[in-house]
Design a protein around this nucleic acid. Structure first.
Lengths: 203, 203
DNA sequence: AAAGAGTTTGACCAAATGGTCAGGATCACG
DNA sequence: CGTGATCCTGACCATTTGGTCAAACTCTTT
């Protein structure tokens, strides 16, 4: 359907999505104005609307593009690997994502906190399926005694929350720790690694 | 300064704050309109503004009233108690608050995710002081060998994030677990209790 | 270079929104 | 009951905001 994009289209849609991610992630959907996005992208408001039919369309484009990347780390959880190491690796990858893609994390957080009006389908569908799938893997590990007995779903929730916290509550974390740049992420990695290693190693 | 409130004042300011908490916590500050609050409170918009000078004043009143209650559980962390049990008790109290006061939790989350424009002072001040204080208590427990060696600040962050997750990301949790009412909070309590007990018990 | 596709903008619009105000209704109290 | 304080509202206003449109500009292609 979509003909290949022109040079200018590629440049401008990219600029728009980047600018929109900046603003949406910091102000939420309703808190963001088209003028803010336009200014951040270096375009006029009518020109924005030449590339995207509406404010909502920009937001949707971001969320849709995000979902897949966001779940990639969980997909990589390998049922053939060493259970404790697989989970620790997942935690650390998720923490890296919080550090390297905080805007994406906050965009997602904003959406969920406010009831996920625009992506509830994605959550009820693909996300839920993937989580249940991996919960089954974890249950398998537990039943063979290679992992301490924990509820798989709540384990996953705890990993999401502890790692994303560093992106979503960044302001609070920085207000308390006053870190140099991203230095505190290394400490967080150490802490979480120890936490889950101790809690999940069986015996 | 403020004369004691009349019967009607008490009733209406109460209704306004309750309605505002409903709406703000679900739509954020900019996503909320005075009309929405007025309707939810059963008052006219001009009447709202008879009791509060502006939308922001309502929001501020909520946040200010919230801060104290929000930190109460942490204040109760007793340096004379049994370390592991004190922390587990804190986790469970925090989880109860997520269950019983989800609106408050989301109001706070909305504010922080969006850069805490209105309460950064509170965070840099009282909250930071309290956290540093309790971090010192935890450090003391560790130095006497009564608690496994973990970074106190990141421990506190992890407790905040894992518990508040059930309020702030409620929609997502429910979409995945399809719980009956609040049944999943009991499971979450079991999980978190086990997680922290295993991770923090020394030796 | 000409034509057609693709790109950009100033001017504009309707709806929504935070807030005001003068006057009327109601309440508390002597 | 009367009167001053408190409470409430309809009408109104200025600004912001998402979105439109016709006209102009620029790029690509032949």
């Amino acid at each position: 359907m979509t003909r290949s994009q022109t040079r200018i289209q590629k440049k401008n849609t990219g600029a728009i999505l980047g600018a929109a991610l900046d603003v949406f992630s910091l102000q939420g959907f309703r808190g963001t104005t088209l003028d803010q996005i336009a200014q951040a992208a270096g375009l006029s408001k009518p020109n924005l609307l030449y590339y995207f039919p509406s404010k909502e369309a920009i937001h949707d484009a971001l969320l849709m593009g995000l979902m897949d990347t966001w779940l990639d780390p969980l997909r990589e959880l390998d049922s053939d690997g060493n259970p404790v190491e697989e989970i620790v690796a997942y935690v650390l990858r998720k923490l890296e994502m919080a550090r390297d893609y905080p805007r994406e994390s906050r965009l997602f957080a904003n959406e969920i906190v406010q009831g996920a009006p625009r992506i509830l389908d994605q959550i009820e569908g693909p996300l839920r399926d993937l989580v249940n799938d991996k919960a089954e893997v974890i249950r398998g590990w537990i039943s063979t005694g290679k992992l301490a007995e924990v509820d798989p779903h709540h384990l996953i929730f705890s990993i999401w929350s502890t790692t994303q916290h560093y992106a979503d509550f960044d302001i609070q974390v920085r207000a308390i720790l006053h870190p140099e740049g991203d230095a505190h992420y290394a400490e967080a990695g150490q802490f979480l690694q120890a936490l889950y290693r101790r809690a999940l190693t069986p015996g």
